[in-house]
Simulated scan of single mutants.
Amino acid sequence: MSSDIAQPTTATGHARQYGDRALQTLLSANRALLRAEQVNALYQEMCRIIVETGGYAMAWIGIARHDPGRSVDAVAHYGDRDGYLRDLRISWADVANGRGPTGTAIRTESVQINHDFECNPRMEPWRERARSHGYRSSLSIPLRDERAVFGALTLYAREPDAFDGAELELLNQLAEDLSHGVRHLRLRQEHAHNARLLRRSLFATIEALTVALEKKDPFTAGHQRRVSRLSARIARELGVSDFDIEGIRIAAQLHDVGMIQVPSELLVKTGPLTPDDYDLIRRHARAGFDILEPIDFPWPVAEMVHQHHERIDGGGYPRGLRGERILLGARIIAVADTAVAMNTAKPYRETPGPDATLQALRDGRGTAYDPAVVDACLHLLRDLREAA
């Protein structure tokens, strides 16, 4: 810790007053840390608390840049109504404009106490500016991350000898807490950024799989997207959480991805399908599971795809699951798939049409399909053009 040659002259009776204001500042600062969401907003809030709660004249935070001049950027300040920082060029290099408290704190990684601008010979370059703003003393505390000092917190007081004893210890703790808070927020933001990149990559993969299937089977182009949209709407109608709706939407968009492994000539066959043809097509549910299971989705996407042809009475495939053993997402996709498929032309049949679709859903209610899911779908599809 560095201190200028001008020694404290304030009465010791002021020590408790200074310590109390520093303690209140520290408590308020820690409450702000708990609420913080963004680094820059935290910097600004800390400066505000230091001035409004602590009663200090001004506070600012400077970040060390690694440019040729090793400049210090003021990223937040409070109490500087008269522009003390305006046009002030500060460096953390060992040059004339880097030998003030802030630059020295960063460069030497040590606390810099200026007891009195009027008496401290090192403050001569800034004395007149400080005098015109009513500042008598200052304190600069380095801010550290896990690697090195990345900036400094600088405070100004209107009285000399304002930073000493218990007050200095508490303000050092505040700066340390701020540093920890910044590290935590940066890690959180880095994780959020990585999550966004992963999400974009995931959706690109989903889109690529969808396009690949549509190219293989042009008769069902757009089918998976329409099933996805309707499934999400049914899930929302049932009160499913936004998080789980997203998983259902993704599973629905990929529900027929296993068709990639079905021979192309079968997908475009214009005549009636044989029992062997149906057997090959039914394998797509398991094939889809095998394709998607290695992908680390935050939802059971592969299992929903695996189950989307199961029926609540046990009459579905590939495993003959019943009732609640079938995931809700799969039960939703089953109904949406039926509603959309019956309004889509196939090479081997005409489109049954809206009335037949409604009747098929009603007939399957409680046997093939979950009654609540059917009711939600029928409510949404008064006009079956939404499923087309």
Results as ranks from 00 to 15, higher is better:
residue 178 L to D: 09
residue 180 H to R: 10
residue 181 G to C: 03
residue 181 G to N: 03
residue 182 V to Y: 00
residue 182 V to W: 02
residue 184 H to A: 14
residue 184 H to I: 15
residue 185 L to E: 02
residue 186 R to N: 05
residue 188 R to D: 02
residue 188 R to N: 04
residue 189 Q to L: 00
residue 189 Q to A: 08
residue 189 Q to I: 05
residue 191 H to L: 15
residue 192 A to L: 02
residue 195 A to C: 08
residue 195 A to W: 01
residue 196 R to E: 02
residue 196 R to V: 00
residue 197 L to A: 09
residue 197 L to Y: 04
residue 198 L to K: 12
residue 198 L to I: 07
residue 199 R to Y: 11
residue 201 S to V: 07
residue 201 S to L: 11
residue 202 L to N: 12
residue 203 F to D: 14
residue 204 A to I: 10
residue 205 T to P: 06
residue 205 T to D: 12
residue 206 I to M: 14
residue 206 I to K: 12
residue 206 I to N: 12
residue 206 I to R: 14
residue 207 E to S: 15
residue 208 A to L: 14
residue 210 T to K: 12
residue 211 V to Q: 14
residue 211 V to K: 11
residue 212 A to F: 05
residue 213 L to A: 05
residue 213 L to Q: 07
residue 213 L to E: 10
residue 214 E to N: 08
residue 218 P to Y: 10
residue 218 P to G: 02
residue 218 P to T: 07
residue 218 P to F: 12
residue 220 T to Q: 09
residue 221 A to D: 13
residue 222 G to S: 08
residue 223 H to R: 06
residue 225 R to M: 13
residue 226 R to V: 09
residue 226 R to S: 10
residue 227 V to W: 05
residue 227 V to E: 08
residue 228 S to R: 00
residue 228 S to N: 06
residue 229 R to N: 13
residue 231 S to H: 00
residue 233 R to E: 12
residue 234 I to Q: 04
residue 235 A to H: 02
residue 240 V to K: 02
residue 240 V to E: 09
residue 241 S to K: 10
residue 241 S to C: 07
residue 243 F to W: 11
residue 243 F to R: 14
residue 244 D to E: 13
residue 246 E to K: 15
residue 248 I to S: 01
residue 248 I to A: 04
residue 249 R to Y: 05
residue 250 I to Q: 08
residue 250 I to A: 08
residue 251 A to K: 07
residue 252 A to M: 08
residue 254 L to I: 05
residue 254 L to N: 04
residue 255 H to K: 00
residue 258 G to L: 01
residue 258 G to I: 07
residue 259 M to F: 07
residue 260 I to Q: 13
residue 262 V to R: 03
residue 263 P to V: 10
residue 264 S to V: 06
residue 266 L to T: 04
residue 267 L to W: 09
residue 267 L to N: 00
residue 268 V to M: 05
residue 269 K to Y: 04
residue 269 K to P: 02
residue 270 T to S: 12
residue 271 G to D: 08
residue 272 P to Q: 01
residue 273 L to G: 01
residue 274 T to A: 03
residue 274 T to S: 09
residue 274 T to L: 09
residue 274 T to N: 07
residue 282 R to V: 00
residue 284 H to D: 04
residue 285 A to M: 10
residue 285 A to G: 06
residue 287 A to K: 07
residue 292 L to M: 03
residue 292 L to I: 04
residue 292 L to V: 00
residue 293 E to A: 14
residue 293 E to K: 14
residue 294 P to G: 08
residue 295 I to H: 02
residue 295 I to P: 01
residue 295 I to M: 11
residue 296 D to M: 15
residue 299 W to V: 03
residue 301 V to I: 12
residue 301 V to P: 05
residue 303 E to F: 10
residue 304 M to E: 11
